[in-house]
Write a protein that binds this DNA or RNA. Sequence first.
DNA 1: CAAACTAGTTCGTGGCACGAAGTAATGCAA
DNA 2: TTGCATTACTTCGTGCCACGAACTAGTTTG
Lengths: 143, 143
Amino acid sequence: MEQVASGLVRLTFLVQSVYAEVGRGCELTPTQAQMLCVLREGPKGMAELCGVLGVERSSLTGLVDRAERSGLVVRTPDPTDRRAVKVALTEAGDRAAREFHEQITSRLAALLDDLSPTEQVRFSRSLTRIVTAAGVPLAIGPH
Amino acid sequence: MEQVASGLVRLTFLVQSVYAEVGRGCELTPTQAQMLCVLREGPKGMAELCGVLGVERSSLTGLVDRAERSGLVVRTPDPTDRRAVKVALTEAGDRAAREFHEQITSRLAALLDDLSPTEQVRFSRSLTRIVTAAGVPLAIGPH
DNA sequence: CAAACTAGTTCGTGGCACGAAGTAATGCAA
DNA sequence: TTGCATTACTTCGTGCCACGAACTAGTTTG
């Protein structure tokens, strides 16, 4: 139990540091990277984005502000609801998201290099089981 | 590859959220909790602590300041080097660290509940392999 | 139509991180 | 021993991120 917990915490630090490092390479903060990855699915309203990112509305405003200032996203008015906005990737944002996604995917997969192919598959499967059982949203979406 | 990366990121979010939640219950920020756990091994100098926590000195100063203000740690002068200080847990800090450690250990171990005993062992072993291969420090130390 | 609700923003606060620059003690070398 | 580089830590300025409370404006509902 002790073992597992320690391993999980250490793995988390490891993943976080890789995440941050790849982010820096793409000129993205970790939170920005996460947001851009989510937005690759398509434009989202602020509230919707809050849900996926697990963040309060007031936090998201600043997040989007900064990303917008950096030219990564744009706020467009929602034609069906004049209160609402849709946040969408710009060309540059899409490029950054694509690059980040590609790199993070390969860097993280490389962490399993020391495992045998069988172990890799088993590990990956267990991973999926654990996170789906706990109901964690995707965040680094496929595609 | 895609699968693995996504799983790792999601697991990381999951662990982080459990970590934060348990921390809140002990009135600790995640960073504080991490520091306290490290200090359970014994008093440490600032520089040494930086190394383990992976943080710059200037960041650590504030971290220790806040923890000291909360009565969790104390700075004591190092008798052998008048420039240096040792950061040590107070009674309250030790209590908090112990409580946090106990809870995080069981909460994280519980994440594997959906796996069969065999899978749990395999997963745990792979976990250890991955983090040791990557040279991640302990952070949530045994004992 | 008024009241209740929803979408987002603003504001104030605080934690955390960084790098650059500063202070003070130490150690080494001439 | 004197003097200079090194080390240990702090301070300062900046920026990101998070939160809750309070606000504006538009939408829905009774």
